[in-house]
Design a protein around this nucleic acid. Structure first.
Lengths: 332, 332
DNA sequence: CTGAAAGCGCTAACAC
DNA sequence: GTGTTAGCGCTTTCAG
């Protein structure tokens, strides 16, 4: 079934069928109805591949991401998929989790498929050279969270510093002074920003930094959170509150508490980060939301505007974090 | 940059470039190297859209799914994406969560994009008429979990009955007799199979069914689990164990327990389902794993074999469930 | 308002 | 071994 078949069956030309299918251009009512009738009867579906070749517009957005252990990946994907669908685009998600698929090949496939735009979320393996290839092809590009400063490329950054700061401030306002920090080793800026937010909040409150209260782990993960908790809970003078840079840590921390029959927030106060799992835990934990609901829309809007004008200078959008209070911090 | 440009630059014909790009057919070493050189220099990337049009093979798999509240959706997507990538395919995921996007339109887009195969996972809005369209186009189709018996279409079913049966049997073997059930109203067969598994296990152990111990909820969800727990925990003669058909219910149940300072498994024993969140809870909960790791491979293998021979009769593969014991059932 | 014609970039016979 | 040629199914000027 092709447009030509439809044209023949309806007794019109190929062009007319095209106009009806795309609802564009003038077609007399009779002819239109004739064509529509045939289309309905035959169950004809336009070939988007051919359309894409001819119009060099595929309606596809490439999303390059990395499968991280926390649930962030799914949230981000969901948000982008949804926003894209609402705007008539479909997302092709490439997860660079395997060693055998290197980022360069992935990008080549994206380019080969002639996607109309590319979103890269927190991929650590990026460098200017790789991105250059995309830019040369003039494909709109937006980078999320882990961003490089590249010409004519938009960035969406998460205000991690503020997020951490606000969380710790919240704890301090509840009267806590011995506040522990569980985070990940700073491979990337993200982790540093969170740690800095924590330190700044302490400083602002005139609380001296206590190195024994800072627990840095190799990875995000439940086990890691549990292990960190084991150490912190053994401390001669135990912290009264803990700020963790991932809800996964909070999961693990709570498991350790459960084993020791330590109650939250009665015996210790906790604040998580990501707002992914915190609402599901026992008890639900106050957590920093990264405001990812709008992320997809932001991504798509940046991409779409750049499709219209590829020459605009690189813009930067900050996704603002907010604290979701679930009462897991006790008033001292 | 097209193949013709490369051909000119390398002083060979279009065909020769094609042979080099596709690594197929005879090309003398000199010419090949010349072509490869030019490709490298220019950063040429073959146009997969044109390839797709010409070869009517897009390397795309369409995945039609529905965004459910439990984490199953992500697990399934991940599994399929990964299996597809390993076989050189890319997945286009369509989530029919919005009312405005009806399944028929989604299917049309999949057909329009000329995907090489379609996987439909637990979509409740399916009917023969819709599927007919896919079959007419001769696109390999595999349905997961919620399946219809359609000619020349493969099915992957989850052995929910066995899963539930095994879970309840596990509880019974630990000496429990008052075992509650939290499930979802039976919109679909899935829910019934789980309830039936529960009932059958009780029957096999000679335990009379107690209607007050069966709690059916409108939806899967944390809140729902919590509400169910509130009722069950108020019962004059409280159950000693609870089997729930979703880890989300278990989350909610644990929150209710936490509020009442009821400990698991000391005061009550719990078993979840899905094995999605159970490992993250406090305490970790014994749960039924749906064995989704292999799901993607199964899907792809069924699809690939049908691409080779579209006439094979519909096959059925059963994904076997297994109980992951985390000690949340106490020995009475 | 409608149609004829020229490709989009690539593949696959088929000839040389 | 290598090149010529004819499309895949559609969009888009440009005439009528």
């Amino acid at each position: 079934m092709t447009m030509i078949d439809i044209a023949k069956a309806a007794g019109v030309s190929l062009t007319t069928v095209g106009r009806v299918v795309r609802k564009k251009g003038y077609v007399s009512r009779e002819k239109r109805e004739a064509v529509e009738e045939v289309i309905r009867k035959t169950g004809y579906v336009p070939n988007l591949v051919a359309q894409g070749l001819k119009s060099s517009r595929t309606g596809l957005i490439g999303h390059l991401t990395v499968l991280n252990p926390n649930m962030l990946y799914e949230q981000i994907s969901k948000s982008i998929n949804r926003a894209a669908a609402q705007r008539g685009y479909q997302v092709l998600t490439y997860a660079a989790d395997l060693e055998d698929q290197n980022t360069a090949d992935l990008l080549d496939e994206l380019i080969g498929r002639r996607v109309d735009g590319i979103a890269i979320t927190s991929n650590p393996q990026l460098d200017q050279t790789l991105l250059q290839k995309i830019l040369v092809q003039n494909i709109p590009l937006v980078m999320v969270e882990r961003t490089l400063n590249v010409k004519r490329t938009d960035r969406i950054v998460v205000s991690d510093y503020r997020g951490a700061y606000t969380a710790v401030q919240h704890i301090i306002r509840h009267g806590h002074r011995k506040i522990a920090f569980i985070g990940k080793f700073a491979d990337q800026d993200v982790e540093n920003r969170r740690l800095n937010g924590y330190k700044a909040a302490l400083r602002a409150a005139g609380i001296a930094e206590d190195k024994t209260l800072i627990e840095l782990r190799r990875n995000y993960g439940v086990e890691e959170g549990s292990a960190a908790a084991e150490r912190l809970l053994e401390l001669p003078s135990r912290p009264t509150a803990v700020f963790m840079t991932s809800d996964l840590f909070a999961c693990g921390f709570l498991q350790a508490c459960y084993r020791r029959k330590i109650r939250v927030p009665d015996d210790i106060s906790l604040v998580g980060y990501d707002n992914t799992l915190s609402m599901m835990l026992s008890p639900p934990i106050t957590s920093v939301s990264l405001g990812l609901d709008d992320l997809g829309s932001d991504v798509m809007e940046l991409l779409l505007s750049r499709m219209n004008d590829g020459l605009i200078e690189g813009r930067q959008v900050a996704n603002s974090t907010s604290l979701i209070d679930r009462g897991s911090v006790r008033l001292l």
